[in-house]
């Protein structure tokens, strides 16, 4: 093969030395593409050039031949840098494939089933900014009487955040009781997180439980975004604030718990900061814009509302998601 390359190069060089046309230069450039594909190092190319020249013009002065030796010496490191780049590109490709697999594992591992509870519609959208999601949703329900939802957000995104999520999942799995009080749920999860994570890893979490018989939504929050409550009769929104420290800071925290009575058409919007901190190049998208967007969709199904809000905000942000985006709606239908 090298001899064939030498022969072809000599021919291209001969043509060009004879006639300095663009066509001959183009032939040379196409040939270099082949050389790159065949992993011919730059120092090798110069050596091929030198050999071709020696055959064509053997009478050239010694100085010229010496100068090529210097050039070959200098090109060795370019060759090494090129080979290193190639290998790093391959590694990057491997990492990408691994990330895709990991994201799949995460999806399977953290899968949760939206409960079906009489008189309640649940809408959910959760989209990661990168491959792995740092937001987490977990549903709990029992005997169709209670529907609980945990909305958690690890500060930060990507792989470290995603790894943290499994801890929340197994903590929630251990509860298996949808009647548990939200403040109790947060207390248990907080103890698990506090024991298991570094001091620089923080998780915010909102836990809400809807009771069918009383039509009451009970909630508590560990430093999470307040949920929005839409009062259909008044036609207005209010924030559901609840005091509580982020998960994992200290072992013993007493979380405040509140409740709100839901009437027909009322709904509760739970979200992560990927929603509230949506921004365009001009700055944050105002909370009122999001609220009025949801308001205009109030008569739609819970799933249609979350899907439409996501699509609209994605469009406003030029399809660039800066943070993981999660939106859950509990809507009372009768």
């Amino acid at each position: 093969m090298p001899q064939e390359i030498e022969r072809q190069y000599k021919e291209i060089l001969r043509q060009y030395v004879m006639r300095q046309t663009e066509q001959n230069l183009y032939a040379g450039q196409n040939f270099s593409r082949q050389l790159i594909q065949k992993n011919i190092a730059p120092e090798e190319v110069i050596s091929i050039h030198k050999a071709a020249l020696e055959e064509m013009f053997p009478e050239l002065p010694m100085n010229v031949w010496h100068s090529f030796d210097l050039l070959i010496e200098m090109m060795i490191r370019y060759g090494l840098a090129h080979a290193e780049h190639q290998s790093l590109l391959e590694q990057q490709e491997e990492i990408k494939v691994e990330m895709d697999l990991a994201a799949n594992v995460q999806r399977t591992l953290l899968k949760t089933t939206v409960p079906e509870v009489a008189g309640l519609e649940i809408g959910l959208v959760s989209v990661p900014a990168r491959k792995m999601n740092g937001d987490y949703i977990y549903f709990l329900s029992d005997d169709l009487k209670n529907a609980g939802v945990a909305v958690a957000d690890v500060i930060g995104k990507g792989i470290p955040a995603a790894l943290c999520m499994s801890m929340i999942k197994y903590g929630m799995d251990s509860l298996q009781d949808a009647t548990s009080d939200p403040k109790k749920v947060l207390d248990i999860i907080n103890r698990i997180v506090e024991k298991s994570v570094d001091d620089d890893m923080f998780i915010s979490m909102f836990y809400g439980r809807y009771n069918v018989e009383q039509s009451v939504f009970t909630y508590a929050s560990a430093g999470h975004e307040p949920a929005l409550f839409y009062d259909a009769q008044k036609g207005e929104f209010s924030e559901l604030h609840a005091k509580g420290l982020l998960l994992g800071v200290v072992p013993n925290v007493t979380y405040a718990q509140h409740e709100v009575k839901m009437e027909y058409g009322d709904f509760i919007v739970m979200m992560t900061d990927g929603v509230t901190e949506c921004r365009t190049d001009e700055g944050f998208i105002e909370q009122e814009i999001i609220a009025s967007l949801i308001h205009s969709l109030r008569d739609e199904s819970a799933q249609t509302i979350v899907d439409t809000v996501y699509k609209e905000l994605e469009k406003m942000q030029n399809f660039e998601l800066r943070d993981d985006f999660t939106l859950v709606i509990f809507k009372k239908t009768h």
């Binding site: 120092e43 050596s47 030198k50 030796d69 070959i72 010496e73 060795i76 490191r77």
Partner: peptide, 11 residues
């Protein structure tokens, strides 16, 4: 060794 390999060994 040829020139190119000499340069590689030296490097």
């Amino acid at each position: 060794f040829g020139t190119v390999d000499q340069a590689r060994i030296t490097t």
